[in-house]
């Protein structure tokens, strides 16, 4: 994907899906790289996030292979406003060297927000039909994921709020 094309007003479905996959691949490798560097007590968090990204990548590739979607790969669609944030985030994770759990979660939440906005806009820009449904689906997936992370954030950061009793392994 050339820089020039990335800045033009229109793009193709294939490029959009490729950008999305790239977004997830970058994140996956970012989290995977972080795993050994992060303290063991919060490593589960990064491991979970890496697993989630991998799941997204698989989902996108499965989508691309869907013959019906594949038929639309060259369709032109309007490039979303959120796209710049989206592609930027794919390249430049702003996370320190030794992040704590809250930082990791805030970073992950911000990424989910970008992805939601991207897919929602794409869905809005497409006519009702297969593509519209696909982007809608992707936006919902990200929304669900973000909701999970929000709940986790509340549980971890607002400890006074939720005394955790699930640690005792019976």
């Amino acid at each position: 994907m050339s820089k020039a094309k990335a800045l033009s007003k229109m793009t193709t479905v294939g490029e959009v899906l490729e950008a999305a996959a790239e977004f997830d691949r970058e994140a996956h490798s970012f989290y995977t790289d972080l795993i050994p560097r992060i303290s063991k007590n919060i490593r589960y968090l990064v491991e979970d996030l890496a697993r989630d990204e991998l799941r997204h990548i698989r989902m996108l590739s499965k989508l691309a292979k869907n013959p019906e979607v594949a038929a639309h790969m060259q369709d032109e669609i309007k490039r979303p406003q959120a796209d710049r944030k989206f592609t930027d985030a794919a390249h430049a994770p702003e996370l320190g060297d030794n992040p704590d759990d809250q930082e990791v979660l805030l970073y992950a939440l911000a990424r989910e927000q970008i992805a939601i906005e991207e897919y929602s806009e794409l869905a809005e820009n497409t006519e009702p039909g297969l593509l519209h449904d696909t982007f809608q689906f992707l936006a919902n997936e990200e929304r669900k994921h973000k909701a999970d992370l929000e709940a986790l954030y509340y549980e971890i950061v607002h400890t006074a709020a939720a005394p955790l009793r699930h640690n005792r392994q019976h």
Binding site: N41, Y44, D101, V157, H158, T159, L164, N167, R168, Q169
Partner: peptide, 28 residues
């Protein structure tokens, strides 16, 4: 809004040796 345990006192090795569950030391 909330508090956290200062587990840094454990040191790197012990932190690594211990089993954890969702950010807390795993206990039976």
């Amino acid at each position: 809004i909330g508090q956290a345990a200062d587990v840094s006192i454990l040191g790197k090795d012990l932190t690594e040796a211990l089993e954890w569950t969702r950010g807390r030391i795993r206990v039976d």
